[in-house]
Design a binder for these strands. Structure first.
Length: 500
RNA sequence: GGUCUCGUGGCCGAGUGGCUAGGCUGAGCUCUGCAAAAGCUCCUACAGCGGUUCGAAUCCGCUCGAGACCUCCA
């Protein structure tokens, strides 16, 4: 029996706004598509939230025994700027400002995104398709929608015919929008004069002479519209329909709404079974966004180099910080909260180290403590299966930490558990921290060397203490502390250390 | 203006009809040569006002406040 049968996952489907039992389209397999970044700037905390939220989804499904295909795209054809920029492409704009080739910009920020994700211990996707690498698929899809009579061509651009689509399909269901309301607020955006209906959106755009990123198409030289890439790539790699489509809540409208319309237009069915959206990150109660100029990029967090940051925060601190909140809640950034997260994480990893060194004495006696240990493990699964509630899961892990510390300070308690219960407890603690939540120990590269060197110093200090030469023993400890290494004397005379 | 979400203790944040999540901070204590770590104890909250209920932070209504989307954004 697979774990997913024992602990079925319930997730909040944005489409229905309800928590639903997850039933994969193909039993045992899960297809996930996540809207990745538009690579025209350094990755910031918001990118991390989305990536980490769905990394948890990916990791937990895998842990439960599902075969997962996880696709996360890279948007490297910039989208049109809306207002004063007269339809200039974001990536082009950046390229012009930085005097670079557009693809150079794309490469630069793709690298920087991947590096940040690796630092955050976000597992790489199984497929990471780029929009520029799927121009043909996007053209084919556009042709298909044209064939269905749900799009029209004007001056080398192709638009989705929303009015016609509305006769059979729904628009606004995902984001809770009413077409009439949207019409009232229609703005005069790029290409409006070409559209038959204000809410029509571009599938293919004709390239202006100065537009460098351009490809030939049946409609002339141009570039794909904003929404078509995700439909084309998800269909190619995951099929229609597929299980889970994720992204930030800000993408719900219009991006995902348009994806549904396109998918319906092209394939005659809704392309996605479950829509999942992570919430936004706020800074002093306001959304952190590029357009608001209040975002902090990830390398700034890792180095502490930003006016709003009191100190540097390690990637795992950032990760832990996000896991303390549910992915569907807004999360407010503050130095205080991050510092709290840093300490809490340390507590957790300290217990993990303690546990890993701990061996069960082997006396196989089962008592009521076994039931307690059992229930922790059960709760871990229950909480994760309940819409990936990492906050609750962490609360259980902290309860388990308290238990581990108890075992450490009072070994007799260990005798009150059966080997089996203890092993199960131990494995679950390790697996949930490291594999499911993806929290890894952060150590320097020369850990091996450090370990050996410290062993020598610790031996010297032990000797000094045995001789009651506290002046020397304190000097060793204090000097190491100044370097960021904390020695801790145990009851049994053993000395442990941690990096601060 | 339309649509929607939220308002939890000093701070961050789960929960959501009855059983004080958890973390951080602060205070005291235990252990320790002194530290550190760990443990124990204390600070017991759900914006306000009504209503439903045996019982509401949790459901309903109103008021106040904050935010999101409606336009590129994770």
């Amino acid at each position: 029996m697979q774990l997913y049968e024992k602990y079925p996952v319930y997730l909040t489907n944005s489409l229905t706004r309800n928590k639903e039992k997850f039933e994969p389209i193909t039993p045992g397999y899960v297809g996930i598509y996540l809207c990745g970044p538009t690579v025209y700037g350094d990755p910031h905390l918001g990118h991390a939230r989305s990536a980490i939220s769905f990394d948890i989804v990916n990791r937990y499904f895998r842990h439960l025994g599902y075969k997962v295909r996880y696709v996360r795209n890279i948007t490297d054809v910039g989208h049109l700027e809306n207002d004063a920029d007269e339809g200039e492409d974001k990536i082009l704009k950046k390229a012009r400002l930085e005097q670079l080739e557009p693809m150079q910009v794309v490469q630069l920020y793709t690298n920087s995104y991947r590096r940040a994700m690796e630092q955050l211990n976000v597992l790489p996707p199984d497929i990471e398709p780029t929009a520029t690498g799927h121009i043909i698929e996007q053209i084919e899809l556009t042709k298909k929608i044209l064939e269905q009579g749900l799009a029209y061509e004007v001056n080398g651009s192709v638009y989705f015919d929303l009015k016609k689509y509305l006769a059979t399909g729904k628009y606004g269901e995902l984001s809770g929008k009413v077409v009439e309301d949207l019409l009232v607020n229609t703005r005069d955006t790029e290409g409006m004069e070409e559209k038959r209906f204000p809410l029509d959106f571009a599938l293919w755009k004709k390239a202006q002479p100065q537009h460098i990123m351009r490809w030939p198409s049946p409609w002339g030289e141009g570039f794909p519209g904003w929404h078509i890439e995700c439909t084309a790539m998800s269909a190619k790699y995951l099929g229609v329909p597929f299980d889970i489509h994720g992204g930030g809540m800000d993408l719900q409208f219009p991006h995902h709404e348009c994806e549904i319309a396109q998918g319906f237009g092209a394939f005659g069915k809704s392309p996605v079974k479950y829509w999942m959206h992570n919430n936004m990150l706020t800074i002093s109660g306001q959304k952190m966004a590029k357009s608001l100029g209040n975002f902090i990029n990830l390398q700034q967090f890792f180095t502490g180099n930003h006016p709003l940051l009191a100190q540097a925060y390690s990637p795992m601190t950032i990760r832990f910080f996000m896991l303390q909140a549910h992915y569907r809640s807004t999360l407010d950034f503050s130095n205080e909260a991050l510092q709290a997260a840093e300490k809490a994480l340390k507590r957790l990893t300290n217990s993990l180290t303690t546990l890993q060194k701990m061996e069960h004495p082997g006396a196989n006696r089962s008592t009521e403590l076994d039931a307690t240990l059992h229930s922790y493990v059960e709760q871990l699964y229950q909480n994760m299966s309940d819409d990936f509630n990492t906050a609750k899961t962490l609360a259980v892990l902290f309860d388990m930490s308290a238990r581990i510390n108890e075992f450490k300070s009072d070994r007799t308690r260990l005798y009150e558990t059966s080997t089996e219960a203890f092993q199960q407890f131990k494995i679950a603690y390790e697996v949930f921290i490291q594999d499911v939540l993806g929290l890894k120990e952060e150590t320097g590269q020369d850990h091996q060397l450090l370990e050996g060197t410290l062993r020598i110093l610790i031996e010297l200090r032990k000797k000094a203490r045995a001789e009651r030469n506290f002046a020397l023993s304190d000097k060793i400890r204090d000097d190491l502390k100044a370097l960021g290494i904390q020695l801790m004397d145990g009851k049994d005379g053993e000395i442990n250390w941690t990096l601060e």
